[in-house]
């Protein structure tokens, strides 16, 4: 049995048509719906792979407003046995260090697992810092940019392959440990037993997601026993001083503008392209 905790986050839905900009080209968060961070889906798939192969429990945790329950619901659709939301007005405005502290304390209250899994970067903040910082505060060994995991339950070890810049490394670490999945992570199910179990677990988790309340808990700062000086704005060393639209590039080329409906003009462009390739 290998117990996992997966951290997830709600982020603005960056798909075209969903994302709204203000007039100055900055993101209009109020108008943009919140969804499960896409990278976290990969972390959940990794936890599901471990559950299929070794059993155990997958717990999903997040920090954010109470409305993030829908985000946890989305997470449970991928996989989760239960879900916790750390939610308190005092936690608002947290940077990565304050978030890492809050997540770490939450995990301690739930009970520290064999493996913590986070996705690589959130689609909004994109710092990629919260996972490593949480691992550091928990004093868990960390393996980042992981593309595949094998757990050796007998020897209480993990063997993971990771992308290290220009190299692939195989890393061995004792359990418990903290895994950060790379966007290129792939789960592999070679045996029929595993594939059947995968399908069964998927069906069960979708049912849980639909009626999330029986497996969902929200805890505030007091319930988590958090030091008010270490959370939210107060616990955050950094501030965002200014957000501005990046100026668009000055004109460098004067484009010949043609309509996509103008067949003759398209034929002409095709000829120019052909010439440029030959030349």
């Amino acid at each position: 049995m290998v117990d996992c905790i997966v951290t997830v986050k709600g982020v603005p839905d960056f798909r075209e048509g969903k994302v709204h900009f203000k007039e100055d080209n900055t993101l209009n968060r109020g108008e943009t719906p919140t969804v499960l961070n896409p990278s976290d889906r990969i972390a959940l798939m990794a936890a599901l792979e471990i559950k299929v192969k070794h059993g155990g429990k997958v717990t999903v945790v997040s920090m954010g407003p109470l409305g993030y329950k829908t985000v946890l619901q989305e997470a449970l659709e991928v996989y989760g046995d239960d879900a916790y939301l750390f939610s308190d007005r005092q936690m608002g405005g947290a940077d990565t260090l304050a978030t890492a502290y809050t997540l770490g304390m939450g995990m301690k209250k739930i009970g520290l697992p064999d493996i913590v899994i986070s996705g690589f970067k959130t689609a909004d903040g994109e710092t990629g810092q919260t996972g490593p910082q949480t691992a550091w505060l928990l004093d868990y060994p960390i393996i980042t940019h992981v593309i595949s995991i094998e757990v050796d339950t007998g020897n209480r070890k993990v063997l993971a392959r990771r992308l290290a810049g220009e190299d692939i490394e195989e890393i061995e670490s004792p359990l418990p440990c903290y895994i950060i999945t790379d966007p290129n992570f792939e789960a592999s199910y070679r045996s029929a037993t595993h594939r059947l179990r995968f399908l069964k677990l998927q069906e069960e988790t979708r049912a849980r997601a639909a009626t999330i309340d029986s497996v969902f808990k929200a805890w505030n700062a007091t319930e988590l026993g958090l030091d008010p000086k270490k959370i939210g704005l107060k616990g955050s060393p950094t501030i965002v001083n200014k957000v501005e639209a990046i100026p668009t590039a000055p004109r460098e080329r004067t484009a010949k503008v043609i309509s996509g409906k103008d067949d003759q003009a398209l034929a002409e462009v095709a000829k120019q392209i052909a010439q440029a390739i030959r030349g």
């Binding site: 590039a249 004109r251 460098e252 996509g260 398209l266 034929a267």
Partner: peptide, 25 residues
Amino acid sequence: EFSDVFIEGDIFEVIPKLEAHLARA
């Protein structure tokens, strides 16, 4: 502002047409 040719149109409509012309060219 940094293109030599700017084709205004939906890529789903323009690509097949451009592709046909390119195949010929």
